[in-house]
Nucleic acid binder design. Structure first.
Ligand code: FES
Ligand code: FES
Lengths: 144, 144
DNA sequence: ATTATAAAGGACAATAATATCTTTTATTAA
DNA sequence: TTAATAAAAGATATTATTGTCCTTTATAAT
């Protein structure tokens, strides 16, 4: 479904959001251990996310990554996916036609678009703060 | 969503099914032109599909690929996807955890499984003959 | 000012996916 | 039985994704 980059990115963002709820900044090392992802690769992903204003970062001692409360309330999973995987998942044809077009549809178009829209709706309506709050319940996991 | 192999494979299977409805066997060249796919790569994909008894093939003059009427009625898109992409799409965690497990779920699990099941249902309930018949309507396309 | 910390950035490496090319095998028709 | 046709199989090439390593920049504390 999503690329590895996107999977790590989503897990990282959820972990950072959870910690930001407690006003804690987290370092790359802490993040990659918490979500069980390759550290250097995760660093690259976090760079993309900070450049695109999903997460914030501060260099130096006591620095690290965090997410502004305002951003947590506004941002949804869709924003993260768009940064890391583009919007192919929202606009691409299920059978790989160069463009998904209602007027020249592939034989799977109508059935496929139905599911694609449900996925889109789900990602757009799941905010980071919702997930951060869920994580406080101790029933959800970000590794293994 | 699907790999390139799977996209080409699905398009090829739908085209072959449509032609088999008319009792026509089709060659690799015909197929790759009809679905606008790289010929040699498509050959590899068709080999996998014949080995796995999705499509049938005959070598030599007047040979080519076809699908048995019985197979067309029985086989669904899910069978094709499983051969080419495995069943990761049915069993994999949306956030890339090593295994998707209801008892140790990722924060997206329940929302994700809902969509995953809908996709599974759609693929399992779309038979090749349904799509072959649809293609006769001249409203659906397999390229551009 | 110096040192330690931590993210940012650039260069490179390994692996997997995609794609091509060549040879072999099976089948048909002349 | 020979030549032509078409799929199967094997080897190789290209590209994208995933992953690592090293250097630079910013910040904080001593
Ligand atoms: S044209 Fe294929 S999904 Fe829309
Ligand atoms: S554990 Fe992540 S989708 Fe099931």
């Amino acid at each position: 479904m999503f690329s590895k980059s996107c999977e790590y990115g989503l897990r990282a963002v959820i972990f950072i959001a959870q910690q930001s709820l407690l006003d804690t900044k987290v370092s790359l090392t802490t993040i990659s251990e918490a979500i069980d992802s390759p550290q250097a690769f995760t660093a690259k992903i976090l760079q993309q996310l900070t450049r695109n204003n999903i997460v914030s970062s501060i260099k130096g001692p006591h620095g690290g990554f965090y997410i502004e409360m305002e951003a947590m309330k506004t941002l949804n999973l869709s924003a993260v996916v768009k940064v890391l995987d583009g919007d192919d998942i929202y606009t691409g044809c299920g059978l790989g036609l160069k463009q998904c077009n209602e007027d020249k549809p592939c034989p799977l178009h109508f059935k496929f678009v139905d599911i694609r829209e449900k996925l889109k709706y789900m990602l757009e309506n799941t905010t980071l703060i919702m997930l951060a709050n869920d994580m406080e319940l101790d029933v959800f996991h970000l590794k293994t």
